[in-house]
Design a binder for these strands. Sequence first.
DNA 1: CGCATACTTGAAATAGTTCAAAAGACGTGG
DNA 2: CCACGTCTTTTGAACTATTTCAAGTATGCG
Lengths: 254, 254
Amino acid sequence: MKIASKRTVDEALALYLARLTLRSPLSADERSALLALPARSQRVGVERDFVQPGDKVDHACLVIDGLVARFAQIRDGSRSFVALHIPGDMADLHSVVLPRVTWALHALTPSTILRVPHAALREISERFPAVSAAFWRDCVVDANVLAQWTVNMSRKEALGRVAHLLCEMAERYSAIGVGDRSAFPLPITQADMSDAVGLTPVHLNRVLKRLGEQGLAAKDSATVRILNWQLLCAVAEFEPDYLQLSRDTRDQTG
Amino acid sequence: MKIASKRTVDEALALYLARLTLRSPLSADERSALLALPARSQRVGVERDFVQPGDKVDHACLVIDGLVARFAQIRDGSRSFVALHIPGDMADLHSVVLPRVTWALHALTPSTILRVPHAALREISERFPAVSAAFWRDCVVDANVLAQWTVNMSRKEALGRVAHLLCEMAERYSAIGVGDRSAFPLPITQADMSDAVGLTPVHLNRVLKRLGEQGLAAKDSATVRILNWQLLCAVAEFEPDYLQLSRDTRDQTG
DNA sequence: CGCATACTTGAAATAGTTCAAAAGACGTGG
DNA sequence: CCACGTCTTTTGAACTATTTCAAGTATGCG
């Protein structure tokens, strides 16, 4: 594990603070306490599981760079992704209140993560109830996404499922200022992507082809281009409210 | 809305306190503050949606009696359940930090719920960080269940999915002292149950028949009898850790 | 007893899987 | 900068799980 320069850590924490304040108003004190969190950054090689099911972890992983999947494994060896994490996401904030984890974290590309000790996160949440609420709220949004994935898996056919994932990632990348609704990075192989939508790689390939043919979206190895946002959303039945990214849907407090 | 007798409310809050302390140790002060929460109980008729998507709610719903589903609706009218709530579950504790909800709460049987004002829940979490952490932790366990459902939907065939739901409900009912691993109540129609496993009612019917024929489990209108727990768990690939119900899996704090 | 709701069964249709193999991309070392 | 091996994407064809449609039987309630 390499100790990151102070500057890198500062930038990463600022990124995370931006994420939190998008959904939760925080005072100057609270903000500076968050920026003062102890943390060390770590590079993770591609295809590496850096948290394993059954581990008892003592830190949370903030994704700074790259693409990370949270997944569970089935007996037959097949995997099911339950979340995709992009820079700015605290991939396992849950572990602060439930340190024994039941899933794995896996780097889909070479990634940089910032390890933030649970002790510090617990200390800051006890000191500042608003920070505690902000953490809790972000976990709830993560669960919203999960609920949406469950809906997609259970009641949508392949085309809609894939379209929905593209819409979701477009919005999430857009919210961190990377790409927009016409193009965004998604450095993921079709094999990995198939684990995120619950399809076989073969079928996902055919579905992606169909999305292209119908003028909806096109994906190459690292990028998604959206050809018709309106239509793609319609096919996906995408309703972005659940992501809690836009100002108009955010009224949390009574 | 009928005002419940003080006694009913007290019992309901005691039920909820038992649930919370199963996962989170709380001091005497914290416990008595929880028992003193203001609340009013309400009867909900069968098939009634008592929270609608888009609602901005100002209270959380504790299920006291009955069976409640949280679900999202697809354009074509089909529904997808994202949670099943039994007595003792705070069905929408999430709404405390995200009052604008994106799903519905639906009574599958005539149910009794206890409405607990957000204001009181926020006040108690600010006063007692441990209570805040307990709420947060319970939301995370709810998300664990959701993640498991996503895995079931995406990578398990029908028999395993249904078997898994039966295992999960057996454990959860057992944890509140209702039924055990050989029999427990599940007053749900096959049509409703099919929305919980992402199958058509017709196919669910055939799968249930097969579970009976293979000597795994049998369901009638109100009850599930488990014929072979070991085998059912094997078919389901059921690993109960994610439910955080048994003492040995609970080590939350660093 | 009769009506409505829930469950059961059958047969045809289809979305998605599986297996197998070919074609394309990509980095590495010569 | 080309050749080679590896990994990823693409395509085909047979197969299977699940859906759909449609009709029948049980069940429970007033």
